[in-house]
Write a protein that binds this DNA or RNA. Sequence first.
DNA 1: GGGAAATTGGAGTATCAACTCCAAAATCCG
DNA 2: CGGATTTTGGAGTTGATACTCCAATTTCCC
Lengths: 207, 207
Amino acid sequence: MTETARRLTPKGQATHDRIVAAAARLMLEQGVARTTIEDIQAAAGVSPSQLYHYFPGKDALVTAVIDHQTTQALDVQQGCLERLDTIDSLGRWRDVMVNILTEMHCVGGCPLGSLASDLSDSDPVARMQLAGAFSRWQELIREGLTEMQDRGELAADANPADLAVAMLAAVQGGLLLSQVNRDPAPLRIAVDTMIDHLHVLTHPATP
Amino acid sequence: MTETARRLTPKGQATHDRIVAAAARLMLEQGVARTTIEDIQAAAGVSPSQLYHYFPGKDALVTAVIDHQTTQALDVQQGCLERLDTIDSLGRWRDVMVNILTEMHCVGGCPLGSLASDLSDSDPVARMQLAGAFSRWQELIREGLTEMQDRGELAADANPADLAVAMLAAVQGGLLLSQVNRDPAPLRIAVDTMIDHLHVLTHPATP
DNA sequence: GGGAAATTGGAGTATCAACTCCAAAATCCG
DNA sequence: CGGATTTTGGAGTTGATACTCCAATTTCCC
């Protein structure tokens, strides 16, 4: 966000990125507080002085991890949601999320949701940062639904903004239940139910 | 669960309960890992030896807190869901949850959901314990929906089990979004949308 | 090539958190 | 009452963790 990377050698940039990636993975798997600087050093293969050369302290590292996960998550969402021309495309969007979760064996849940639950009440700065990320995500969904509505794929009297909130909540809640049950089914069912709601809103007289 | 409380004086029981209550509050507000034994001692007004007299260590304390929050949460749910005779009663159920969240100023989110996100990938025993709690919660909702279905308040071809999963996901996701936004609206919208789905499933021809 | 800047290595410190220990005080029960 | 048991007080120990420091090495740029 701010003008980081003032004078960064390619090698330095690589080390920087390696640290963020390692921190992101560890914080997702075991939580922020349980992830020690030493853990990150080991996972990234760097020495203490390297880590503190690129980040003033753990707080800055957390900020960088949130940015990293936000970019990652929204990129995936954008890729799926920009071509939202039909109900079926929502099904593909659901498949992408279920597949990612399955590859992770349901460990970690949502990279943004885990951070949000972890940090919302401990780190006001992080909370604001994450609230912004969720706003953008919600907006992405809303835009897609609005386009569908304009195209007549969604009932004219539906409220895309509220439906976007509900859809995002279904994703987050589904991911949490999948994480605790180690089973992708809850995510699939939760999202499918919301998709079904859009469907039934549009075609009330389904035989 | 196991036969705790072998020989406990009333005074001892009170101290025990005070420790659990303090630990539960702190772990909800700042997470398990960030809550130190010293924090709990101060909040409960007990000395180190007292705490370790009643609990072998932090792990045992976490187990006790999960049990405590499970009982609390399911009691509230049971109170609202046992009299689930109409769609309107679901609205009252939603109001109860929104009110509790508002009283907390959206801090902590769901007592069970926060613990689940925090512990699922760090503590396998806690994960199983929490998975059981969510199963019972889900079952409570499913029973309510099934009764509604038997009474004709819900479409005969609806699937109460899947709808219960989706409803629980909406609650959890809504609570998370409300927590990160410090605004009860997402919870209300997410649950309302699911209720609307039940409504539209039952009365497809709404003018 | 050569000086400046960026990057890296590794030992060291200060603090904090979980847990221990022993003995004193309160409480129970027969 | 009186001995056994439970409950409590508070200092102390051990290990872990975030962070520091200085010098060596590599890389950049002219």
